[in-house]
Computed example of a mutant assay.
Amino acid sequence: MSPTDLTHAVITPANAAGLKRVRQLGPSRIELGWGQTLGFDPLGTRLLSIDKLNTPYRLRWWNLETASDVPAGSVELKLEPSVAFLSSADLIVAGGPPVGEAATPWRPRLLSLSTTDGSLWREDTLPSPVSGLGASRDGTLLVILERDGAWLWDVRSWKQIRDLPGIEGDFTVKECAFSRDSRFAASVISHHDQGHECLYLWDLTTNAQPWHLPIEQLPFVWSVAFHPTQPLLVVGGNASEVLVVDVNERRILKSIPHCQYASNLDFSLDGTLLVESGDGRGFAVHHFDTGEVLFSHSDDEDLQTSDAVFSPDGRFIAWGQGDGTVGLWGVSPVP
């Protein structure tokens, strides 16, 4: 939501139980297996939705500074739906399909698209398809290519900064994330040749090998998120707990019980709240320190799995609904 929209209160542990849907972004599109990956731009003026299960994958975005609930634009891509994000209010960065009319034809690409009309601004050829992207607040991008390792890419200068060591083998990337200060980058992946789920953590101030943590507590991992004010990150998957990892001490600190199949995780602005979306189970808001569920909602669409994410100013939660729309949830206006 626009940072100038101050009519709703910041969501806190004290008022989270009063969350209500305040806006519905459409149009609806009822299809079996619907699901959406969501993300705000850094200022909260645009919201991006990416199909999770349909091919070709559709990207839609809304200008939240206007009253219109109709998407400001949309494009379709043929690759993984999770590899796209809003680097600013003006630009979407995404993995692009090989096409014959590209500068280097029939090669995977990294794309920069305009949010004005979806047109291509910049592109670069890659050795293999992008399988994971994570955006930092300063515009740096973690690019993970299956079979080709991990890179740091600078969106503003549109060039590779350096390789990141230590990731190899037959794997599938689930999610990537940066710490708030951009010192650390993390990725959760499924290692097919090693037969386990794992967390990779890079300290970007060094060229050291990443810390590699096998995740034995979760049969499958899907999500990772850094705490905004503490040296902690959380890992979620298909189990009734979320793991809390101490980044400095490189160890699992504790688990938060009763989180149900966390397909994505996101922290509130100050880290007191953790929102999780579940596999066909809606979304829930937890008090991070205690794990207590303060609010939950579901539309009973068992076949859809969509993200729930906080807006950058902490006033709204966006959640992809079962009919293909996106709901914005907030608490009562400030008196």
Rank of each mutant, 00 (worst) to 15 (best):
V221C: 05
L19K: 11
S74H: 04
I317T: 11
S311W: 02
S2E: 08
L113F: 00
G95C: 10
D5R: 15
V309L: 03
L48W: 12
T172A: 06
D289V: 04
V22Y: 08
V143L: 12
D279G: 06
D138A: 07
W211P: 07
P165A: 14
I11Q: 03
V293T: 14
D266N: 14
V130K: 08
F310G: 07
S2R: 14
G44L: 02
R23C: 02
V93F: 10
I50R: 13
D124Q: 14
A150L: 04
L204F: 11
N238F: 15
I161C: 00
S277W: 07
G330A: 15
T125I: 01
F220Q: 12
I317Y: 08
A84M: 12
S179I: 01
R29F: 11
W158R: 09
F85W: 01
W151P: 05
F184W: 04
F295W: 06
D246K: 00
G322P: 07
T7K: 12
W151V: 03
L152H: 05
A89K: 11
T7G: 12
V173C: 13
A14Y: 01
L32N: 10
T140Q: 13
T115K: 08
Q194D: 05
G134K: 03
L218W: 03
I11S: 12
E101C: 05
Q24T: 14
K254I: 07
W202K: 02
S136M: 00
D41N: 15
S255E: 03
G166N: 08
A186E: 07
L126W: 02
E249A: 15
H227M: 01
A103N: 09
A208N: 13
P335T: 04
G73V: 13
W222H: 14
I92F: 07
V188I: 06
P3C: 08
E249M: 08
R21W: 00
F85Q: 04
S128D: 04
V10P: 01
D138M: 10
V224Q: 03
Q24R: 15
V83M: 09
L126G: 04
S119N: 11
D300C: 05
F85E: 04
G237Y: 02
R60E: 09
I167A: 02
T205V: 11
A9L: 08
